[in-house]
């Protein structure tokens, strides 16, 4: 295999073989290569170092590098699999794979649990859920009295926190999501089905026979 590997691995630190990435994710080799086209554009948007920093991540998502947001920060932290403060190509593909329509349901449940477990303790605590609710209210301009927020939290924890210890563990989250499947809607990106048609230029850079 020629230029995809030799050139890409020099210019893109942490670059991984698309064939291996395809075998580890819900993507085909062609889709991984198409994602590389997207990755190249994002990772060179502010600093052309072959890695995605938080500013580039937010610029790609919101077209606005200044927007600070609790959820965007948390998603960046989860995409930064190796905890280096930047996202490399392997991190990007493996994380996006969870959002593929064909990705295992369990992977989506795991990712959503980590997303809402803001401090990574292994539990979704009431204070974290309140913090996220307040962030959502600020972002949307919706106004709810603190008492209403507490009522929503009471009701949510009454349903989700089966052992009533004030925090939601992984198994409680799995049960809660089964009862409320719409909660996983944010975990599927239909765009990922069409990634090769969205970034067709990947065929000009591919050296893999599958295409």
């Amino acid at each position: 295999m020629g230029c995809f590997h030799s050139t890409a691995s020099k210019q893109f630190p942490g670059h991984e073989d698309p064939v291996i990435l395809a075998s580890q994710t819900a993507f085909s080799v062609s889709e991984v290569e198409a994602l590389f086209e997207l990755y190249k554009s994002i990772s060179s948007s502010v600093i052309d170092d072959g890695l995605i920093n938080k500013e580039e991540f937010q610029l790609a998502l919101f077209k606005n590098r200044k927007k600070e947001n609790l959820f965007a920060n948390r998603i960046f932290e989860l995409f930064d699999v190796k905890k280096k403060g930047v996202i490399d190509f392997g991190d990007f593909v493996k994380s996006l794979s969870v959002f593929h329509p064909n990705a295992p349901h369990e992977d989506k449940i795991d990712f959503s649990f980590k997303l809402y477990d803001l401090d990574g303790t292994g539990f979704i605590e009431r204070q974290e859920v309140k913090q996220m609710l307040i962030a959502l209210l600020c972002e949307s301009g919706m106004k709810l009295a603190d008492e209403t927020v507490e009522i929503i939290l009471d009701k949510t924890f009454l349903e989700a926190d089966v052992n009533q210890d004030g925090k939601i563990d992984k198994s409680e989250w799995q049960n809660f999501v089964r009862q409320n499947p719409s909660l996983l809607k944010i975990m599927t990106l239909p765009y990922l089905r069409d990634i090769t048609t969205t970034f067709p230029s990947f065929v000009f850079h591919s050296e893999v026979d599958e295409i």
Binding site: V129, L136, K155, L189
Partner: peptide
Amino acid sequence: KNPDSPTLINAFQLIGMSSCLDLSGFFEK
């Protein structure tokens, strides 16, 4: 307080409305 109110949305349904949890921005040129 009436935590059993059947009309009440749960906290995660509300949180899921955040536009910042929508990654489709990556694919919009």
